[in-house]
């Protein structure tokens, strides 16, 4: 475990906690894309099936269980518990345009043609684009609450830190995974525009509001 991965994991954990706290304290899921959260639940479920086949460490297992569990709690909050506050009119991204191509790609480009490997690959590809419904929602409404911005920043930083982790592992461990690296680059690039807005606006005390 190197520092980049540890900070990346903590950033991921922080993002999830920020999101849950935002929903719970404000009793509202306004501004949050239920579609992105469903995609994240699918990502974690398909990636962590190895919980049943291999054990790495207590840290690894507990983080996986936490990520899967909280992703379902989040989806439950949006579509059940706080449903009246869910802004479905603005959450109109067509997720089939992500799931179908990503599924096809996972089928064609993978490390090994087996069920678990294809599902793992699918989850890596899907994670890279899962935030698009959320970013689409922010651009459609033209604004994001500060707390939502903090969530997005922590979530985006996590994969950027994993890129540094992979550079480190390449040099010091000779480890390189093309699928993870390409998907990680795509994922991080999708956040670049948001990172720019976050640094130039949110950190100066303004909330993100885009010109109509």
């Amino acid at each position: 475990m190197n520092i980049f991965r540890l900070v990346g994991d903590m950033s991921h954990l922080l993002a999830i906690i920020i999101l849950l706290m935002k929903m719970w304290k404000s009793r509202s899921v306004a501004g949050i894309s239920g579609k992105s959260q469903i995609l994240f639940a699918i990502v974690f479920t398909t990636r962590y099936l190895d919980l049943f086949t291999s054990f790495v460490s207590i840290y690894n297992t507990s983080m996986k269980v936490f990520f899967i569990g909280t992703s379902y709690v989040t989806v439950y909050f949006i579509y059940q518990h706080f449903k009246p506050t869910y802004d479905s009119n603005h959450d109109t991204f067509r997720v089939e345009f992500l799931i179908v191509p990503v599924g096809g790609l996972a089928f064609l480009v993978n490390h090994e043609f087996s069920l678990l490997e294809i599902l793992w690959t699918f989850s890596i590809y899907l994670e890279s684009v899962a935030i698009l419904p959320q970013l689409f929602m922010v651009s459609k409404t033209g604004e994001a609450e500060s707390i939502t911005s903090h969530y997005l920043f922590a979530l985006g930083s996590y994969r950027a830190l994993y890129l540094l982790n992979w550079i480190y592992r390449y040099y010091f461990e000779g480890f390189f995974d093309l699928i993870a690296v390409v998907a990680g680059c795509v994922q991080t690039i999708l956040y670049c525009d948001f990172f720019y807005l976050y640094i130039t606006k949110v950190l100066k005390g303004k909330k993100i509001s885009l010109p109509a």
């Binding site: 790495v56 490390h111 090994e112 592992r169």
Partner: peptide, 10 residues
Amino acid sequence: EKQDAIKDEL
């Protein structure tokens, strides 16, 4: 098959 190293990542 993918390397073992990635199995310890999240």
